[in-house]
Write a protein that binds this DNA or RNA. Structure first.
Lengths: 192, 192
DNA sequence: GCCAATCCATACTCAAGCGTATGGAATCCA
DNA sequence: TGGATTCCATACGCTTGAGTATGGATTGGC
């Protein structure tokens, strides 16, 4: 259950709280982010929390910022390093398809779009990723307008898939089925 | 703001509460569904509510069931009525693209997937719609397995688009841009 | 017109969860 | 080593919103 947070830390830092918050969000959603619960989980009390943060919202804000920067150039950097632009998109698809933990946070935030604080974060992230897809599609020869629409379509499919699978647990796919699905995506979305 | 609920009704029925609940959900999300707020909006007090429903969750449950049945055969029936199967998918895309109100509820529920009650409802709805797409794709000549993957991809793109646009308000599309996006979807997802 | 069923108002209780106040323990540093 | 800084515990106040109790108003059948 708890992944790391018991190496007998005597004192905590703000970053510790932010990490714990992100873990809790990934596992139980933003709605479950309560300061007393978090404190319990960290083995301290509220007194500690309110020394590091002015309010609960401040923690959420900080945790989201942390997540936004932290997980940003995860894969993108490696993809851009590929010499042949034609390999980038398929490789991106396959890489993303087999990541897991980043998606858990992402999916959790996706189903917490109720909260006003997460909306701008997700908007920025989506914007950047769509732009990345946009240039990737132009690099394989698509005209700019078409490439942008294809990028939107691709990212929408990605987001939707996370919702349907992670949150709804919908198409109970085996590994094989999942792989053929990914290949189907590649075949239909990426121009040959 | 309030669309209909003031024709001087002297008494309310359970259905009235359910409709009001759905409206409130569409406008402010599931999180905003509070009985005292709803009562105020309907011009009554909690006393009324707890006569019709045993608990807040009961109302949500009933409202969701109502929505699930109510908005189910909305477009699907009309699409199935089209004689030429080849016309169905494009027509479906264009129709769905220009609907508005049903999507508001759908999008609201999509970003309320935190709540355990909405998950099964959304799962069922998504399942049915994906199956509909599946048969539609087979009817235009796709092999069954490919058609299923294409259906998943299509529905994921739909769901993702709702998230990105409605909730994140992301790509501020003009009507023209939106139309070309839809045509782009049709061109890439539907086999000619 | 009267009684019973239906619908609603008022006035509470109760729990959850945020935030505050204040003092004590641990750590750093000069 | 002693004082300042940093971190935490305990105990409280306050608000919000769900649910209950009970009596009053309204309506439909006879």
């Amino acid at each position: 259950m708890n992944v790391r947070q018991k190496p007998e830390r005597t004192r905590l830092s703000a970053e510790d709280w932010e990490d714990a918050a992100l873990n809790l969000i990934a596992e139980q959603g933003v709605g479950a982010l309560a300061v007393e619960a978090l404190a319990r989980q960290l083995g301290v009390t509220k007194g500690s929390f309110y020394w590091h943060f002015r309010t609960r919202e401040a923690l959420l804000q900080a945790a989201l910022e942390r997540w936004e920067q932290y997980g940003e150039r995860e894969i993108i950097g490696q993809i851009e390093a590929l010499p042949d632009p034609r390999e980038r998109l398929p490789e991106l698809f396959r890489r993303v398809a087999h990541e897991l933990h980043p998606h858990r946070v992402y999916a959790a935030l996706l189903k917490a779009l109720d909260h006003p604080l997460v909306v701008p974060v997700m908007a920025r992230v989506s914007q950047r990723r769509t732009e990345f897809l946009h240039t990737a599609y132009t690099e394989v020869g698509m005209e700019s307008a078409a490439a942008l629409n294809r990028a939107r379509l691709t990212y929408a499919a990605y987001v939707g898939f996370l919702q349907l699978n992670f949150t709804l647990g919908l198409p109970r796919l085996t590994h094989e089925e999942f792989d053929t699905y990914v290949e189907h995506m590649i075949a239909t979305l990426i121009p040959s």
